[in-house]
């Protein structure tokens, strides 16, 4: 049998595999001249409103070994809490901010890194404001279906304490797996795929 013509189940996910860079960041893996540049490398320009920050992190497997062949994508609101998306009906987002970034984990030190701005607060479904956060999605060899989580900010302790999603984490010590630590204008978070420090991943 083959694919049915009118099947309306979601297409099953498959791993991005070891050569995901060829498709998503070809210039990063020295395939040059096909696209002008890799998508998602520039989220901001010199007109972008908001507080400039760097968000970086590593991905570690269940043996605490760096995952150096992953791709991280982030999606976030602008500094006023608006998304640059047609589904954003509350207003118009900063046209100088894409809200979306893509970065491979570095083959040497294992870091992904985004130059972005601190997002504003956006509402939960019931209208309560969520703490500022960035949506993070990870794919790699060995990951059968992309992993969703969020990055919160360590200097937003007050907002984090009443964040509707963070409040739903039953094992309270796991909250910190979603909170990036601030050092100057840089926020850093390690993602643990497995083990005692396993990151809280989301079924969204």
């Amino acid at each position: 049998m083959v694919q049915e013509l009118h099947r309306l189940k979601e297409t099953p996910s498959q791993t991005a595999g070891p050569y995901v860079h060829i498709g998503l960041t070809p210039n990063y893996c020295d395939i040059r001249g096909v696209y002008d540049g890799d998508l998602g490398t520039a989220m901001v320009n010199d007109q972008t409103l908001g507080e400039r920050i760097t968000v970086r992190g590593r991905i570690l497997d269940g043996a605490d070994t760096l995952v150096r062949d992953a791709i991280a994508e982030i999606w976030q609101a602008d500094s006023a809490g608006l998304y640059n998306s047609p589904s954003e009906m509350r207003g118009t987002a900063d046209p100088n901010f894409t809200g979306w970034g893509r970065c491979p984990t570095n083959a040497e030190d294992g870091y992904f890194q985004f130059e972005t701005i601190k997002p504003g607060k956006v509402p939960f479904k019931d209208g309560r404001l969520m703490a500022p956060h960035i949506t993070l999605w990870i794919v790699a060899r060995g990951i059968n279906i992309g992993l969703h989580t969020r990055i919160y900010f360590s200097d937003e302790a007050e907002a984090n304490a009443i964040d509707p999603l963070l409040l739903r984490i039953e094992h309270r010590q796991r909250v910190e797996t979603m909170v990036a630590q601030k050092d100057g204008s840089t926020y850093t978070l390690d993602i643990h795929l497995q083990g005692p420090k396993e990151t809280v991943f989301l079924d969204i």
Binding site: G62, V67, G142, L147, L193, Q194, E198, V200
Partner: peptide, 11 residues
Amino acid sequence: SILRSPQRALL
């Protein structure tokens, strides 16, 4: 997948 698979329930 053995070392790259989350073991906890997804939230």
